[in-house]
């Protein structure tokens, strides 16, 4: 899922400084699961904003809501009404949600309440780890299911660098050297020869270096005709 982290309240206060009434809108997708922008966080953020503004002597009125998702237009439709009611919206969705809302409602002032961090897993409560970088060209079939693009600090493709020590990365001792893991795994499977091939220079276009990425399924687009 997409991992996000709430922005400091101070930053959000700056964004909404001119307004008297704002909506804080959460998302029940990834950001709810990673405890950055679900119902509970909406409540917390809204309360914190109100308190801070009350202390400033410029009370703030908030409207709180959490959408099923913010990355599908159909779930954003309540914004249509909401924008008449409030001056601005703080969205706790990931950047995708904020952008889509900004695309669909150009005159709506919408501000990000979270920093969208990475694609990660939740190995244990309160901890999230990056596992994928969405580079658009998955090669982990050669690396025992472990991604060197997302999990190696130098995104190396041809094995561990000289900073791999005792299975740890030189960047931070708590980070495992993914190439060490890949090696151990393939060795156990008797597939080390996969690593002796020279992996050619990577094509970074699918990773987004060719401009914004897009995926199209014409067979599904057909259904758009019947949408209102």
């Amino acid at each position: 899922m997409i991992i996000a982290e709430r922005k400091p309240i101070g930053r959000i206060l700056q964004m909404i400084a001119p307004f008297k009434k704002v909506a804080v809108i959460g998302c029940r997708g990834c950001v709810a699961i990673c405890s950055a922008g679900g119902d509970r966080e909406v409540e917390t953020v809204a309360a914190a904003l109100r308190l801070a503004r009350k202390r400033e002597g410029r009370p703030l009125e908030t409207v709180e809501d959490t959408f099923v998702r913010q990355c599908d237009p159909e779930y954003l439709t309540p914004l249509e009404e909401l924008r008449k009611e409030v001056e601005a919206v703080v969205s706790l969705a990931c950047g995708v949600g904020v952008n889509l809302a900004a695309d669909l409602y150009p005159d709506l002032k919408i501000y990000p309440g979270v920093d969208t961090s990475f694609y990660g897993a939740n190995p244990s409560l309160g901890q999230w780890e990056e596992k994928c970088r969405g580079c658009g060209d998955c090669i982990i079939d050669f690396t025992g299911g472990l991604c060197p693009i997302a999990r190696c600090a130098k995104n190396l493709l041809n094995g561990p660098c000289g900073g791999s020590q005792g299975g740890r990365c030189e960047i931070r001792p708590e980070v495992a050297c993914v190439w060490h893991q890949i090696y151990e795994r393939l060795k156990a499977r008797g597939e080390v020869e996969k690593l002796t091939q020279i992996w050619p220079a990577k094509n970074w276009i699918p990773a987004g270096h060719g401009g914004p990425r897009e995926r199209v399924r014409p067979d599904l687009q057909f259904n758009n005709n019947s949408k209102k």
């Binding site: 041809n158 561990p160 000289g162 299975g167 060795k187 080390v192 690593l195 002796t196």
Partner: peptide, 19 residues
């Protein structure tokens, strides 16, 4: 090129040298 015989995993270092 450079190679570090003291980094891990040790057995792979020579393979990497070969690469």
């Amino acid at each position: 090129a450079a190679e570090n015989p003291f980094a891990d995993p040790f057995e792979f270092r020579v393979q990497r040298l070969a690469k």
